[in-house]
Amino acid sequence: MKRRILRVAKLVSLGVVLAVVTLALPDASPKSTELALVKVHQGDAASINQNVISILAVGSDARPGENFTHTRGDALQLVTINTKTHAASIIGVPRDSWVDIPGHGNDKINASLYYGGPELLGRTVGNLIGVHPRYVFVTRFQYLTQMVHWLGGIDVRNPYAFSDVSLKPKGFKAGRIHLSGYDAVAYSRIRHTLPRGDFDRSAHQEIVLKAIQAKVRANADRPGFIEHGVLDAMSHMYTNLPPTELFRLAQVMAQVDPSKVRSCVVQGGIGVSSGGASIVLPYVAQARDMGRQIRKDGTLSHCG
């Protein structure tokens, strides 16, 4: 019983990206910091529907010992939730998108996490899409593995089969498949063997996020589920938010109706930087169009 409670708790804590016994977790031992949730200044807040909350979810591939809030973000997804309708949207941004990073000139968009932490990354992604996130959530991929494992895996509908020699030699079949913790991360990270590389990987990350949220939603009515999830997240988290706000955010995330979630990936051309690195030249007009859509009510009617 206790083990199952721990498992679902991990699930909710993950949902704070994307959103559990009369006595709670007795384990008071120090835990490593695996998550960061930062509330950032949202310069355009007044022009955004007040029922809309945007959270930039960032997957970091920081190695043990590295400060994961100041490395290069490997996955960038802007999650926007309408708290009134319980609809949501996810906009994926290819990590190699070549953009202006405020104060640092042109570089790959994920470098802004390295230069200025979650706040600068939030500004940089906000400048591209035209909507600045209210929160930036950063997590290590290792923690994602752990959480999906604890929750018993997730189910996704995989649009086509693919594999990767090092990450998943046997590959993922097309159709409805079950992903373990390891699988969820591999599914989110494989890029080289995908027809459209970074763009397809970003779409896969969105599939995983949606599956995690759906599982959170399915478990949200279990007594203490959200409370223990938030507590567990807090024990691994750096944040500038008070517990009450974390709790509200988790409940908002858990209330999202999975049938009302739509996702898009910002497209772009492929180029080479002056330093010889492969880069994505994002279609800014398309990104801004997505921004205009979510600014209105948090949802996407089309990807453009």
Partner: peptide, 11 residues
């Protein structure tokens, strides 16, 4: 009634 309590409830 008090249901589940999530808190690091050691002393």
């Amino acid at each position: 009634v008090l249901g589940r309590v999530a808190g690091d409830l050691h002393q």
